[in-house]
Design a protein around this nucleic acid. Structure first.
Length: 287
DNA sequence: AGTAAACTCCGGAAGC
DNA sequence: TGCTTCCGGAGTTTAC
């Protein structure tokens, strides 16, 4: 599942290849993924992109943003299984994956292609105008996209404490993209394990120093995951087809029954906020 | 209004 | 072999 670190790595990988490239054509294989004001006029919107250069490849939370000359933009939300692939220049589109689950293909001058692939079809792409890549929220909200909370790597301690003002379970808050934007199931479980906080605890029970610790651990986990290329749990790949290397460094997520890396107690799996949740019952005590 | 749970989309994987 | 169930990011709906 692509969360913030995976999308950051996708952006890094795409940036070095496609920035400055001129779009020759965009082929939408599955029109149902297109959203926004141009949802029903995407053909025309995408035709207008032809001949323009890609100016920026950026990330906002789990969204990947391609900004073109003239401030038109494509914003991708990858859902569970969305990924990008940059087939090597001469590769004759061979992978079976590519034929059956490719949802959109951009072709650049020189013949280089970018494929958006998404098995589960939860991924979406928004066609936007007048997007400032350094402040994309205004354009995204104007197009009807759900407003996003602050970036976890940039948010201040005070703003984070504010985001936690609630009586809901802390895990529910961390997954709520309108409160804080970019975390998903994997990194929420990892951060809560690192901070020694039980995911089902009410935010109201979390003291100021615990919140500060939690934020520090969130930032540490995200930075390490970014550095290691993200986590491949089932099928994440970067645009070159490489797996993330962070999986073997996970401390809680997906380790049900295995010994806690801190105390040796078996990791347990529960359901919190409707999600599979991994905890060490000893390191993450009740209240 | 805030919250929570249920339901929707979808197909691979796991279980029977 | 073939069926059923599970899973989840995010949006919507329903109920308190």
């Amino acid at each position: 599942m692509p969360e913030l670190p995976e999308v950051e790595n996708i952006a890094l990988g795409l940036r070095e290849v496609i920035v400055g490239k001129r779009i020759e054509r965009v082929c939408v294989v599955l029109p149902a993924i297109v959203r926004g004001p141009y949802r029903r006029r995407w053909r025309r919107f995408l035709e207008e992109l032809c001949g323009r250069r890609i100016e920026r490849v950026t990330r906002r939370a789990k969204r990947l943003i391609l900004t073109m000359e003239g401030d038109s933009a494509l914003v991708f939300q990858l859902g569970m299984t969305g990924k990008f692939l940059l087939p090597a220049r001469d590769e004759p589109s061979g992978a079976a994956d590519r034929h059956t689950h490719t949802r959109l293909v951009m072709t650049f001058g020189g013949g280089r292609e970018l494929h958006f692939i998404d098995v589960r079809r939860f991924g979406r792409v928004w066609c936007l105008r007048d997007l400032d890549p350094d402040a994309p929220d205004a354009a995204m909200e104007a197009a009807g996209m759900t407003p996003l909370g602050p970036e976890p790597l940039l948010v201040s301690r005070a703003a984070f404490a504010g985001a936690l003002r609630s009586r809901r379970p802390v895990k529910a808050l961390l997954l709520d993209q309108t409160r804080i934007a970019g975390l998903g199931n994997i990194y929420v479980d990892e951060s809560l394990w690192a901070a020694g906080i039980r995911p089902d605890r009410s935010c109201a029970s979390i003291a100021e120093d615990e919140a500060a610790l939690l934020l520090r651990e969130i930032k540490k986990v995200l930075r390490r995951a970014i550095r290691h290329g993200g986590t491949t749990f089932s099928d994440f790949r970067n645009p070159y087809g490489d797996m993330g290397r962070f999986r073997r460094r996970l401390k809680a997520y997906g380790r049900t029954g295995e010994p806690c890396k801190r105390c040796g107690t078996a990791i347990e799996r529960h359901v919190v906020a409707g999600r599979g949740t991994h905890i060490c019952p000893r390191c993450q005590p009740k209240e």
